Amino acid sequence: MAVNIDLTGRIALVTGSTQGIGAAIAAQLARAGARVAVNGRTAASVERAATALRVEVPGAEVVEVAADVASDEGTARVLDLLPDVDILVNSLGIFRARPALEISDEEWRRYFEVNVLAGVRLTRAYLPGMMERGWGRVQYIASDSAVVIPAEMIHYGVSKTALLGVSRGFAKAAAGTGVTVNSVIAGPTHTGGVEDFVYQLVDRDLSWAEAQRAFMREHRPQSLLQRLIEPEEIANLVTYLASPLASATTGAAVRVDGGYVDAILP
């Protein structure tokens, strides 16, 4: 039997989708037929991403949502433009290497606001409507750093650990309603932001191919894939979890980590 993911008629909001993993997720959902809301902080970045998506996926229905969902005002703007969605992918996230003893209270709060509370607010707003309609999908893009806290950015890792608990808790709130809530544990992924991060940790004079090999060898040696994951590979799993095919998967932390986490379960 052929696997067919058809999201025609569904409305999907992907936060932080102007680049990287979020942009790849938006594209895959659009290919599956969903009407996709592209979100970023500025109108210019959203317009660029939406234009690129329409070129990449001809005929795609794209909604441009310029708003900072890490703020109450930005969340209110999103809800004004999109009162209801069927699929919510909380992809927004920030990361940066910082020695553990140099992370200030302000920075800890910033990571919690962006990486955790932004998704919590949107879930709290959209989940009741999904439950009432008897169908919906909520996902949080977590990270291998949620399980293997990186010494060079524990604030990021802890924020992603929180998402595993948040998704499990909201899944319990939606139990028996036809709505699923999951987190996706993404492994080390090749994005522009990650390229910058890699060069924070390895010699900047190396070519990208050499830098990537050095990074995986020195900082992520436990990866079974032994390369960075491409954003489209994350998007494939997210699109499956957003589909009717994943109706029995909820409250889960699903791994697409290239075997990075050295455990049978997260």
Rank of each mutant, 00 (worst) to 15 (best):
V184N: 00
M153K: 15
E106Y: 09
I141M: 06
T191C: 12
P83W: 10
G157I: 02
E102L: 11
R124L: 11
D105N: 14
P99D: 14
Y140D: 01
I103K: 13
N115C: 03
I154L: 14
V181K: 02
L163A: 02
D196G: 11
G119C: 05
H155Q: 15
T161D: 12
A173H: 10
G136K: 00
W135K: 04
F170C: 04
P128G: 08
A142C: 11
G157C: 07
E106A: 12
V85K: 00
Y111F: 13
T123G: 09
R124P: 02
P99L: 09
G157N: 07
A175I: 07
L92G: 01
T123Q: 05
E152D: 15
M153I: 09
G93N: 05
A118E: 02
G157S: 09
R137F: 03
F170R: 02
R137M: 00
V114Y: 02
K160R: 11
N90G: 05
A171V: 01
S183K: 04
R133D: 06
L88N: 00
Y111M: 12
F112K: 11
T177I: 05
E113Q: 13
E132S: 08
R96I: 06
A162C: 13
D144T: 09
A151H: 15
A186T: 03
A174Y: 01
A151F: 11
V89N: 00
I154F: 12
R168N: 10
S145E: 10
G119P: 04
N115P: 01
Q139Y: 03
V114E: 05
V166M: 09
D80R: 15
P128S: 08
L82Y: 02
E132G: 06
R124M: 11
E152W: 14
S183D: 06
Y140A: 03
S143R: 06
V138E: 03
G192D: 15
D80S: 15
E195V: 08
P128V: 01
G192T: 14
I141T: 01
H155T: 06
A118N: 03
M130C: 04
T191F: 04
R109V: 08
T180H: 03
V120S: 08
L122K: 02
S104G: 14
G192S: 14
E195R: 15
W135L: 03
F112G: 08
V120G: 03
H155L: 07
M153R: 15
V89A: 04
I149N: 10
I94F: 09
A173P: 05
S91G: 09
P99G: 10
L92H: 06
L127W: 07
A146V: 05
V179E: 01
V89H: 01
K172C: 09
R109A: 13
D144Y: 10
F95C: 08
V138K: 00
R110W: 10
V147M: 08
V120Y: 12
G178M: 07
E107N: 13
A151E: 15
G193Q: 14
E107M: 13
